[in-house]
């Protein structure tokens, strides 16, 4: 009985054992035991595309990058884009602001505003500007060296990545103290 339950025949056998008619009627017993659980449906060949599209909608997206171990190769690539985007956003923002309101965003007002800030804000502001500029500049040189066919190996990618990080740290400090 245990093995019958293990293969999922428990309810069918129990029904067959307790039913007087089924126990004697071989045809009825077979019907109970081998009843198909899967319902089939006849479809024209043209319906295949519809089924395919329904399956495509339920497809999971490709593995997201959060499943990967953080590696300096792809982290550096993301940081390169983020720092470049941030610096460009500043350039665009300032230029459009000057175009819209030249009287408010002229150099005299900006310099006057920055000069009135407390020292810690000046230093932190300079660090916030210097860090992305330094990283994007050095990493830009790294990219240009790749474009020339240099350091195109895993070792080269890692070595230049650490070189860029070191140069970024040094030049950020130097720029903040300028």
């Amino acid at each position: 009985m245990m093995s019958a339950r293990a293969v999922g025949l428990g309810p069918a056998l129990r029904r067959a054992a307790f039913s007087q008619n089924l126990a004697r009627n071989q045809v009825a017993l077979r019907t109970v035991l081998f009843k198909r659980a899967v319902q089939t449906q006849s479809l024209p060949p043209a319906a295949s595309e519809e089924i395919l599209n329904q399956q495509r909608l339920k497809r999971p997206s490709s593995p997201h990058f959060t499943i990967y171990q953080p590696q300096i190769t792809w982290l550096g690539s993301i940081v390169n884009r983020v720092t470049g985007g941030a610096l460009s956003a500043l350039l665009y923002g300032f230029s459009i602001a000057y175009l819209v309101a030249p009287g408010t965003f002229d150099s005299a007002h900006i310099v006057e505003f920055v000069a009135g800030l407390p020292e810690y804000l000046k230093y932190s502001g300079k660090a916030i500007l210097a860090l992305p500029f330094a990283f994007h500049s050095w990493n830009g040189l790294r990219h240009l060296s790749w474009d020339m066919g240099k350091f195109l190996s895993v070792k080269g990618a890692y070595g230049t990545a650490y070189a860029v990080l070191g140069a970024t740290a040094v030049s950020t400090v130097a720029l903040v103290l300028m």
């Binding site: 350039l91 230029s95 000057y98 175009l99």
Partner: peptide, 24 residues
Amino acid sequence: ATLVGVYQFNTNDIGLTELIAKVW
């Protein structure tokens, strides 16, 4: 708009490099 704004700033004001140097 940015190209026009930068041109205006470089023409009518002190220009990009001078602005960064002075703000710094």
